[in-house]
Design a protein around this nucleic acid. Structure first.
Lengths: 302, 302
DNA sequence: GGATGATCATACTTTAAAGGTATTAATGAG
DNA sequence: CTCATTAATACCTTTAAAGTATGATCATCC
């Protein structure tokens, strides 16, 4: 049996007349007669009673008409859903996120994507840089978000945001009175650094900036993540260099100050990463959303 | 799109390999490759990612696999149901019944049919002789039950039961003391006759029997149906000739007596009637059940 | 790192089946 | 009894699916 048989049978049943049905189907009458005969033979069931004025459905034929219409509807729905999936409009996007990277930019991005593609289910997985790479390769996630990723052949990196550096400190800090802080002034202040973890990382970046500025920083403490770092800064353990988006962390007693005297490259990137050979339409859609969001942010910066 | 495409795609998806799937489908690899390409082109969706070790499903492909399996199941179920309908095992049987004909024989028959064909819905329609003929011609019913039907060209009659005649009377009747009643004795007893309605009917039959026995009966009352007739007999209006199955009507004060001295043809038939040109499998099944029930009754009479 | 083997894709041919034309058979209407 | 209508059949054409042979690509193994 064939979908064509169903289509033909529906036409014949609706017209109650093989010739008229053939016209409607844009074929001639004899092949239609044959196709219906073939269908009946294959099912082993008489579907039509032939009369001199046309045909009429048997009881089995009436039942089969219902079934045929149902099948047609199911097939239509299947193709429609598949096509939406093929356009990235229906499906699932697994996203690897890295602790503090979830602040600010990423929620905006995910919300924008969900607005454009409401039928794509977004599943978040918290994992660190190494785990993200591993999960990408194993296809457990489609995209990850990270900072300062060393380039890899099979992973493509796409810049999502480039943030200024700010200085987090306790409101009791001697630097708190100033409107802004000169980077070079940090030579005399103990620093809380983060994150400890796979190199290269943000600690390396800060160290390099200090060296470029001509001093060796006083390291008060190295901690695993930004939240801990800011908390320690609030507690007076020292000052802590953070990406701008960290200001979303409004811990009590913490104030953030802009820095002056930093080189242009003293910014910290936030990148989206994905498998270079991934051609899935959902990924494409997601990358498109990134572009849109960046364009919006560029045209109307906050 | 075609059911073949679905079958092929399911095989490819399950084997994750076009060549192996082709073997499983008993075709060679190139046409299978082409059919899959064709399917993708028609949907406008990439369903497979080709790798050097075979193929893997895209997200849309995985969704389509589910849909394809679903369609296959729906189609299988449709053919299965249609085939059962074609064998008379699934569907609907509309039956016209005539008042008192519902006693005894017909319930037995309908129960036997329902036991053999539990998925055929039996719908009963109470209608008289003329209405049954009309309803048969208009296909509102498939079979009817009736007595003493005059032969018609487009309606076939099939004898279901042939019943003796009994005499219903009040237990206070002078005839009540006898074990049986000689038919000729009825010449002196007023008769309650039924049914009034389309000729020929049971009244004609009784009158003929009386004439053959050489007397003109005293007609006490003519009534529309057996129940009324028996009730009047119970009330002392006279005696009432009834088919044997009427004994199911155990009205208070009524007794039934066998008759002696009747000719062989003094029996009343109960027949099933149906359109002569009706070839529906459900009718065939029902006629088959009639045969079986009669055979059972014949081999082991009550 | 080049040979090897596996896999999918392409080109071309064969075969099967769907579609078309002409005609017949059956049946009801005028 | 003829005519019109309808489905069925016979035969031919065309389309498309299947087969054969071969090429391209890429991972794997010595």
């Amino acid at each position: 049996m064939d979908l064509r048989h169903l289509r033909y049978f529906i036409a014949v049943a609706e017209e109650q007349n093989i010739g008229r049905a053939a016209t409607r189907l844009h074929i001639s009458q004899p092949p239609l007669t044959r196709q219906i005969q073939q269908l009946e033979e294959e099912l082993g069931v008489r579907l039509l009673n032939r009369t001199p004025r046309g045909v009429e459905l048997t009881q089995a034929g009436a039942l089969f008409l219902d079934e045929a219409r149902n099948i047609r509807a199911v097939v239509e729905q299947a193709t429609e859903r598949t096509q939406r999936a093929g356009q990235g409009k229906l499906g699932r996007l697994d996203v690897g996120i890295f602790g503090t990277a979830i602040l600010d930019a990423i929620p905006k991005l995910l919300l924008a994507f969900r607005r454009s593609y409401p039928e794509v289910k977004i599943v978040l997985h918290t994992m660190n840089k190494g785990e993200q790479i591993e999960a990408l390769r194993q296809r457990r996630i489609t995209v990850g978000f990270n900072r300062m990723l060393a380039p890899l052949p099979d992973i493509t990196t796409r810049l999502v945001a480039n943030e200024r550096l700010l200085l987090a400190m306790s409101h009791t800090s001697p630097l708190a009175a100033q409107e802004s802080v000169a980077f070079a002034a940090l030579r005399d202040h103990p620093l809380v650094l983060f994150p400890t973890g796979a190199r290269p990382n943000f600690i390396d970046k800060v160290m390099t900036l200090c060296h470029e500025a001509g001093f060796e920083p006083i390291v008060s403490q190295e901690v695993s993540d930004a939240i801990t770092g800011v908390a320690l800064a609030a507690g007076g353990f020292g000052v802590c260099l953070v990406p701008e988006s960290t200001t979303s962390l409004a811990l009590p007693g913490v104030i953030y100050k802009p820095l002056t005297g930093l080189p242009h490259h003293a910014q910290v990137d936030l990148s989206c990463i994905y498998r270079s050979d991934d051609q899935s339409p959902i990924l494409e859609a997601f990358l498109g959303t990134i572009d849109e969001v960046r364009a919006d942010a560029g045209s109307a910066p906050a």
